[in-house]
Design a protein around this nucleic acid. Structure first.
Ligand code: NAD
Ligand code: NAD
Lengths: 248, 248
DNA sequence: CACGATTTGTGCATGCCTTCACAAATGCCT
DNA sequence: AGGCATTTGTGAAGGCATGCACAAATCGTG
């Protein structure tokens, strides 16, 4: 689990003894469900209450067959000849993603990036509540950001338990990231979103996802490099390959 | 191209007429090269000058066979029985990623998040130079951030041309993202990193990568939900499945 | 009630990615 | 010089993911 994708499927489809009845989802599907959810919320705002796989796929930027297959894993409730009921599909995806009630999130490292994250309204509207902020710098402790007081990182165990926090965001410098992760794991946190450019070592039952902006830019850079070498081709061939019509 | 992964391989292995000699890289490999590069820089700082695939894979958090196969696409220069020369491997990866000289980047939308990005030192050290900032809000135009003046977004064409910008970052609200993307494309920008939660519509020759933090959290939430339903199991079974040893 | 238009759900083929396992190559040590 | 330990580079197999293409289901209409 510590790596992004370990096993593709998560759990057997049968109704578990816990009664939670979670279907068996390929990891690639899990990664797309949030995209569908966002697209659905957008469509719901326009007043639409039924949507076809073609429309929704368009809004989410994926192939419609892929979308249908993804939704079929959710014991899909589409109606042939009609489409999907927007409201109930939203509810179903939110349930599967565990968003039926807001999840509380801790944010560790209230620096440059942490400030932006702490003040970001988009999390609340998408199922998350930032419940606590932490920093190691005494000058930052006590500061109030968006209605929250910054705690010292030593208070992690106490606050994490009090607020029933299960997900944490690390926005500290890379050199501090591993020790912060260790502290989080010791408090019982089992999901971490890591912004520090450092591979974290965590137990198998803890999930880590990373966001590294430099990596994203470097991937873009690769394609730029490639495109540059193509457009440097003798003219016609480069022109034909490089320029095509719009549309997905 | 506009979608994250379209075709797996990029270009034929033969030396192109342009003489640039870019190998044929699977997209999955391209996405990992930056990770290797970061790990290598870390190792280089410790004074190491030769590294085995096992060590490097550990530092990058991947399987060593995968690492070796990835590097083999680069006409790899490892030495059997010894390992890879750190300095020359860094140079090779940087070349392939198009980082041999710094790339200039434009940042559009200097709000909450944009401020953090503009002030981030990590980009410079990893091959990028933020050369220009843009915003539509007249109150922000003229403001100086980290030595850069904020331009009005109308000046995009002029500045993009002057600074030879090929990559742009969008950090505007979602509703403005598409029009900003259109403007960027019109200026000749061919790579976009998008932070706005909105699917962008761009020509085929433009690459878009998106970063959506809420999506990352929602993926984590899914796994939390799943873990919770497992630990709710009748004891032994749940315990055995849910708890495993450390190590990757 | 029957028919046609529409749209879902999915079997299937194809291709990509990952991982194992091992032969080939290198360097060190005696 | 020869043998041994080490480590790369890669063939091959298996597992996922993708997308086509179509049968099955549903609705509206006459
Ligand atoms: N700023 C950006 O736009 C940006 C972009 C990409 C990646 N990142 C990464 O995000 C992380 C944070 O970046 P930043 O620009 O906000 O850095 P920053 O230095 O502004 O903030 C880091 C914060 O973490 C706190 N901190 C340090 N050690 C700590 C510890 N052990 N426990 C708790 N808090 C601790 C510091 O006091 C500081 O407030 C870095 O790893 C950086 O590489 C930042
Ligand atoms: N703040 C975060 O931590 C965070 C986290 C995740 C995602 N995001 C996303 O990143 C984007 C920016 O977030 P933010 O919090 O910085 O928002 P913000 O409102 O603070 O900043 C947006 C900036 O974009 C500028 N802008 C608006 N329209 C523009 C246009 N047409 N051209 C150029 N500039 C324009 C505004 O003047 C403002 O300065 C949003 O789409 C948000 O959803 C932000």
């Amino acid at each position: 689990m510590s790596h992004q994708r370990d096993r593709a499927s998560t759990r057997n489809a049968q109704t578990g003894p816990s009664g939670l009845d979670l279907p068996d989802l390929p990891e690639a599907t899990v990664a797309r469900l949030p995209e569908y959810l966002r697209a659905l919320h957008g469509l719901a705002e326009t007043g639409l209450d039924v949507v076809s796989s073609e429309e929704l796929a368009g809004a989410a930027g994926v192939n419609s067959a892929k979308l249908r297959k993804d939704l079929s894993y959710l014991r899909s409730s589409g109606t042939r000849g009609v489409g999907y009921d927007v409201a109930s599909l939203i509810a179903k995806i939110e349930y599967v993603l565990g968003l039926s009630q807001h999840r509380t999130v801790a944010l560790v490292g209230v620096g440059n990036l942490g400030h932006a994250l702490a003040g970001y309204a988009g999390f609340e509207s998408r199922g998350f509540h930032i419940a606590a902020l932490f920093d190691a710098d005494p000058r930052r402790v006590g500061e109030r950001i968006g209605g929250l007081r910054v705690h010292h990182v030593d208070e992690l165990p106490l606050v994490v338990a009090q607020e029933r926090i299960s997900i944490a965001v690390i926005a500290t410098p890379a050199q501090a990231a591993q020790s912060v992760a260790d502290a989080l794991v010791a408090c019982g946190v089992t999901s971490i979103l890591n912004f520090a450019p450092k591979v974290l070592n965590v137990p198998d039952n803890v999930d880590v996802r990373k966001v590294d902006l430099a990596i994203e830019l470097q991937i873009l850079s690769f394609h730029e490099h490639r495109k540059a070498s193509l457009t440097a081709l003798p003219s016609t061939l480069g022109g034909v390959l490089g320029q095509e019509a719009y549309g997905s």
